[in-house]
Amino acid sequence: MDASMKDLEQLAVLDPARGREPTAMEWTRSQAFVERVIAAEVTPRPTRRPVGRWLAVGVAAAAAGAVAVVAVPALLPGTAQKAIASWTAEPSSRTGEQVLPQARACAGNGVGGSSSAVHPRDVLLAEQRGTATLLIMKKSSGTVVECLSVGKDQLASMGLADERPLPALPAGTVNLETMSSTGSGDSMWSNIIGLVGSDVTGVEVRLDNGRVLQASVKSGWWAAWWPGPEGGQVDRLTVTVHTSTGSTSYRPSELP
């Protein structure tokens, strides 16, 4: 920065990360993550088959043990492919008791803080599509997180809401809390999540390619995930909200 940029130097006092250095624990977690990512490709193997890569990831994750970090979303490519291969357009509803192991794994990662004790009632919504379990749960910190679990050691997680009260929606309406896609090629998947008002009996997602999938609705939330990129694109799907009096369809950009 040259002398003529004193105004910019002056601005540095507002920098929220001024003097911020990663802690030793942050370095440890990040390096462990990097090793996991590398292990998926570097572990000696006879071929480059995806299945080999996935197995290598599993071994590396086990070796990393308690310091393994979960990215958001962090399903590695092989795992995502496995989940995608078994995906179903219609989910099976799961109770908190049924998904307690996944909820414990979800609670144990650092996203939205960790929960030491997990109860079935902490699970707000849970569904199964093939091998993947999607759940929304409240952590002891009061934050609400989403987790997508595949197998015993593969988990993607993201924070949905902090501890403050959520807005109450008008009856028969839904909002859009988050919609995104992650991965690439055959490993790309999308998710969509929102809140529902009372009197919403169901939510359906119709992709522009014609595929229709049923979202799960429970405890004031609606959620779905599917293979493909539409969650990261603008208005490439339609959300249909069913109530006791009829149905209304929206593009995501039309949802509050």
Partner: peptide, 17 residues
């Protein structure tokens, strides 16, 4: 800050790929 580490992890995963 609670979100930052996860974003950074995703960036490094992309960088490796």
């Amino acid at each position: 800050g609670s979100e930052a580490e996860d974003v950074v992890s995703t960036v490094f995963m992309t960088a490796w790929r």
